[in-house]
Amino acid sequence: MSQPTEQPRRFPDAREDVARWDRTPETPQTLSPSYRLAFNDADFLTREELRPVRLQLELLKPEMTLAERGIDSTVVMFGSARIPDPADTGPARPASGLAHWYEEARTFARLCTKKAISTGNRDYVVCTGGGPGIMEAGSRGAWEEGGVSVSLNIVLPHEQSPNLYGTPELSFNFHYFAIRKMHFLMRARAIVAFPGGFGTLDELFEVLTLVQTGRMKRLPILLFGGDFWHEVIDWQALVRAGTVAPDDLGLITHVANAAEAWKVVESWPAS
């Protein structure tokens, strides 16, 4: 079957108009902010009233890019930015007692990526928050295996650069936490959480709430490090208090290592 021929454009491409605007002679009128093309005016786009537009743009940009790259599903890796590479002997090692989880995350990412490569990097693609610690370990494992990974970074008051292992073409930066968390889940076929702090807990309980309430289809939700999680969260206390049902705890699977986690992810029935 022949492919449909592309129809000629009836109207100028927006980029063509930007180029024309750049060549406009400078006059008092053309130098006025009011004369700038609205979609090419950063001062206008960052106004408080334009928040709904910015929210939509943050939803669309990663979604369109991932769709164009043919990425159908991801394995999302949450965990602390403060867990260091065990090989790092520098002075700043805030969560050094948890450093072994860096290597476990790296190994797990390699297992995911090996499968992803067999699908043409369409399924089981590693997705992290793009920062240091466990996020770096996930990106690094994918990179070492020769695959790709998705990085969803966010602008923070303190400087945070993306780790150097994420696939550049799949590295995104967000202003809104809510849109970032939405992108974590839109393609997720599994969620794994390593020990972490407030951010990891926020991300974990977001997905637990969505699955528990039926707003999201059930998927593997794996917690690495049983001792950590049982100390941080008294799951049975929630059941005893009646605030969650006993069956709700079945949404979570505790795993001890990368191989065990991968076995759960790989054997999960396709939805």
Rank of each mutant, 00 (worst) to 15 (best):
V264R: 15
L219T: 06
P132A: 13
E68H: 14
H158N: 11
M135T: 05
Q236F: 06
V18N: 01
L164C: 07
S2M: 04
W235N: 05
V126M: 04
A193Q: 10
M1W: 15
I154D: 02
R140V: 02
E16S: 06
A178I: 10
P84Y: 08
M77D: 02
T27W: 13
Y35F: 12
R189S: 15
R82V: 03
D43T: 09
P269G: 04
T65K: 15
A190P: 04
D85Q: 09
R215S: 10
S139H: 13
E63L: 02
A92W: 11
R23N: 08
S139M: 09
A105H: 01
A256M: 06
G97R: 12
T113A: 02
D202Q: 01
P94Y: 07
F228K: 02
A116K: 10
S2D: 15
P86Y: 14
T107E: 15
P25H: 10
A95V: 00
R140Q: 12
R240E: 10
V150G: 03
E63R: 14
F108Y: 12
A105I: 14
S118L: 07
A42N: 01
R189L: 11
K114N: 12
A245C: 07
A92S: 07
K217S: 06
M1D: 11
L55Q: 09
K114G: 01
S171G: 11
V232D: 00
M64L: 15
T128P: 13
G90L: 05
H100C: 03
Q212Y: 07
V125Y: 08
T119A: 06
T200A: 04
P86W: 14
Y176Q: 00
L219H: 02
Q7E: 11
F228V: 13
N173M: 14
